[in-house]
Design a protein around this nucleic acid. Structure first.
Lengths: 245, 245
DNA sequence: CGGATGCTTGATCCCCTTCAAATAACGTGG
DNA sequence: CCACGTTATTTGAAGGGGATCAAGCATCCG
């Protein structure tokens, strides 16, 4: 029985059935979990690449800066997310990882990937699939940034957050905590904090959302889904082609 | 000796040294190459997922539409590129693949991935790395879309194209063929064709670029690199952690 | 309770869009 | 190789979405 409460096991076994051996293998790869206070940086862009993480609790985000100070938040990480995948193709981190909340991280070393690739084709397929799923999520975000208005972008972001939160907690409803500042939302969506404020007020005035106590409520999620042509990439991965072992 | 001129072998062996066995394995996975006329669609968004491709010759691009007709080109594919990676995590294609030129494709089936994962950890690592490298390229593009002006986006695109073309042909200089229409560039960068025209004229007036005979010349690439804080993601992948076999 | 941080609001500006039309380049058939 | 329709590029004028700057409020936290 998998009595071990490994983050990685917890996370990956959600996607596809894994053998006992694979589960054990995963559990041994993990290092001791590690807390990080809100506002702190786990690593900075340019740092030598170290570990990958599973985000056990709290929100975080990855971002890059331009020389003149413009900032782009690239990913908002939710509990259960694997963090650091894109960087492993390179020697140095391409983004800075900052904690939104007090956060708990479960690190596992980059070299663990090598072990997985050598020993478990099925786990390898899973890692690859997650990476490729994330790529499609980026593509969806790219479409939002390229062709959507500020209002649509915010709607898209909210739907995306809901879908992601629902992955680790199926009980998530149309009301959930949103700990990001408007400046952070702005840096994520490529607009300004001022316009985030204006747009969210407008969305609230028109009954699309409600804000209170750091939480947000989607009043009519399916309307927002139509508005943004939203597609939940977390719900329907294809695992049928995976090797059996 | 690898006498077979397999596209896949050609492509992948560029990144990291591979064993004879791996090279042979790759060669057998490939199906017969296939031509596609310019302007035609290889597959459409929503189609059941079939093959992956190596683009042997010509340019192509992948795009999505919004219900109201807005279009976002997501990737511009150059000779040597592997096409279709993001889709394999799903049952259906998420984008439409359209040919810019008369194109030659080397298809290999999705099931080939399963074979690779089972038989060659080293090739698996390579596939994963390419997927993750592409993810970083998307992140760079995202940053451009979120925080850069039209002019900076165009500069970024040109630098990216040059870097990619140089991967398969190191002889590529600051002058190269640019077969995209301004409408396509616009749909790629999230601006309008009209503004692409205006901006490129301005860039030409100010001596940053030259256009002639369907080609473009970068007059001072390093200046453009500073302007956009450009980073060549194709030049420096980290393969040091790969399994040996 | 006081400072800092985050949110809202107003006035003004500009990058880019939209619409429309003219010009140029291209592809095809004769 | 030219003629002609088609598609791509350029140009102009006008308008809007969102940026910028600056100030006033609300909230959080020690």
């Amino acid at each position: 029985m998998a009595e071990t409460k490994s983050c990685l096991v917890e996370k990956l076994s959600r996607y596809a059935p894994l053998s006992e051996r694979d589960l054990e293998r995963l559990a041994t790869l993990e290092e001791e979990e590690r807390p990080c206070p809100r506002g702190s940086d786990v690593h900075r862009a340019g740092d030598r690449n170290g570990d990958l993480f599973v985000l056990k609790a709290g929100w975080a985000f990855s971002f890059t800066n331009m020389p003149d100070g413009r900032r782009q938040i690239v990913t908002v990480h939710h509990p259960g997310d694997v963090i650091g995948f894109p960087d492993i193709a390179f020697r140095n981190a391409t983004t800075t990882l900052r904690c939104v909340d007090d956060v708990t991280l479960c690190p596992f070393p980059k070299s663990a990937l090598s072990v997985i690739l050598r020993e478990s084709p099925r786990l390898s397929a899973l890692m690859l699939s997650i990476a490729l799923r994330d790529q499609v999520v980026f593509i969806d975000l790219l479409r939002a940034m390229g062709r959507m208005s500020a209002r649509e972008r915010i709607a898209h972001m909210l739907l995306d957050f809901r879908a992601r939160l629902r992955m680790t907690d199926p009980a998530v409803t149309d009301r959930f905590r949103l700990p990001l500042t408007q400046q952070q939302i702005a840096d994520y969506l490529g607009i300004t904090n001022v316009y985030v404020s204006r747009t969210m007020i407008q969305m609230e005035d028109e009954g699309e959302i409600v804000r209170s106590e750091g939480h947000i409520t989607l009043r009519d999620a399916s309307k927002l889904e139509r508005l943004t042509d939203f597609c939940d990439r977390y719900a329907d991965m294809d695992t049928s082609w995976f090797p059996d072992t």
